[in-house]
């Protein structure tokens, strides 16, 4: 509003700003009052934005506004993705779709629209203003909607409660992350420092199991660790020891599930639980699933993108040839932009 301008400030703009601030404030108040335990509210807000903008995409007369409404629709569905705990896809959607693909569309719309005439800049082409077979296609669209939602009405499955550890299967593929997490707690310094083996049920060696969120650590100096553990537990119970419990933090103490066990092969091991902070984040799970689960499809996606790029280049070259041949033959009236 404070930007320099020639004309007087448009009262409509002020009204719109106040209305937008009011709606935003209302949503913020609703979020504060009821948002913490009711993400459903945001589902309805985002669904409304998404579908309303999608409706405007197909009804707006001017292509450039259609594309802009499509961006709004993308942002709305990005919000829905966020509600579905797909954080990585949320931002990928905003960056790739709204940021890259839609900008391409906007470029092409600007390239391929009739230049504004002198008398007025509101040029709406006849093929934008008049729909084709509106009744039949709307009927077809609602038929599809009825079929899709009809299938859905068989059952209403509830979404399971999200837990932090729901993606922990990916931890089996992330040994360095698990190792770093135990290192941070301070438990790895009693071992030889490595926790990379994934052998559920193995007897010897350090290993971890992502399913049960347990790890077995081979102790370097069992007596030292035992003493440290005893001191730490005594301090936790309230005993006043002159010497401190070494560097065994309360968090590390709470993770130790068993006192050291001596195995048949002579190694002394201790069972520990995973720290609470250790869980596979959304992006890690998606990455493991993408590269580990679908490597061939990933390669093919790269090939498809390469082919699309080649195709676009070939098409662009063809246009130049066309223009040159038209110029050489002196043909007029069929070239783009001159007259429709």
């Amino acid at each position: 509003m404070a930007l320099p301008r020639r004309s007087k400030i448009n009262p409509q703009a002020i009204g719109g700003l106040i209305a937008a601030a009011g709606v935003g404030g209302l949503i913020a108040i609703l979020a504060l009052v009821a948002g913490a335990d009711r993400p459903n509210l945001f589902f309805y807000i985002f669904a409304f934005i998404t579908l309303g903008a999608a409706l405007r995409v197909i009804t707006h007369k001017r292509p450039i506004y259609s594309a802009l409404y499509f961006i709004l629709s993308i942002l709305g569905s990005a919000g829905l993705y966020l509600l579905l705990d797909a954080e990585f896809m949320t931002f990928a959607l905003v960056i790739i779709y709204a940021g890259a693909i839609l900008i391409t569309y906007l470029f092409v719309i600007m390239l391929a629209t009739t230049a504004p005439s002198d008398e007025g800049y509101e040029v709406v082409e006849e093929y934008d203003a008049v729909a084709r077979e509106p009744i039949v296609s709307t009927f077809a669209g609602f038929l599809v909607l009825a079929i899709l939602t009809g299938w859905l009405s068989v059952g209403v499955p509830h979404l399971p409660e999200p837990t932090q550890s729901s993606g922990d299967a990916a931890l089996a593929s992330l040994p360095l992350k698990v190792q770093a997490s135990f290192d941070e707690v301070g438990l790895l310094k009693f071992t030889d420092g490595s926790l990379t083996a994934v052998q559920p049920g193995a007897e010897a060696g350090s290993w971890y199991d992502a399913e049960t969120r347990q790890a077995q650590l081979v102790l370097k100096d069992p007596a030292d660790f035992r003493e440290l553990l005893r001191n730490a537990r005594a301090i936790e119970r309230g005993a006043d020891l002159s010497e401190d419990a070494g560097s065994l933090s309360p968090e590390a103490l709470s993770l130790v599930q068993t006192d050291p066990i001596t195995n048949a092969d002579g190694s002394v091991v201790v069972m520990v639980a995973f720290p609470d902070s250790l869980y596979a984040r959304n992006i890690e799970s998606v990455g493991v699933e993408l590269v580990g689960g679908h490597p061939l499809a990933l390669e093919m996606a790269g090939v498809i993108l390469l082919l699309a790029m080649l195709g676009a280049v070939v098409l662009a070259r063809k246009r130049i040839d066309l223009e040159q041949s038209e110029k050489l033959s002196g043909a007029t009236g069929t070239l783009g932009g001159s007259n429709a």
């Binding site: 259609s66 077979e133 509106p134 709307t138």
Partner: peptide, 24 residues
């Protein structure tokens, strides 16, 4: 979520059938 998804798909179909602008 599936209803929203189906509605978006149907809007896309309606738009594809009715609009005559190739970009749209």
């Amino acid at each position: 979520y599936l209803v929203v998804s189906a509605a978006m798909f149907s809007l896309g179909i309606i738009g594809f059938l009715t609009r005559r602008n190739m970009i749209i």
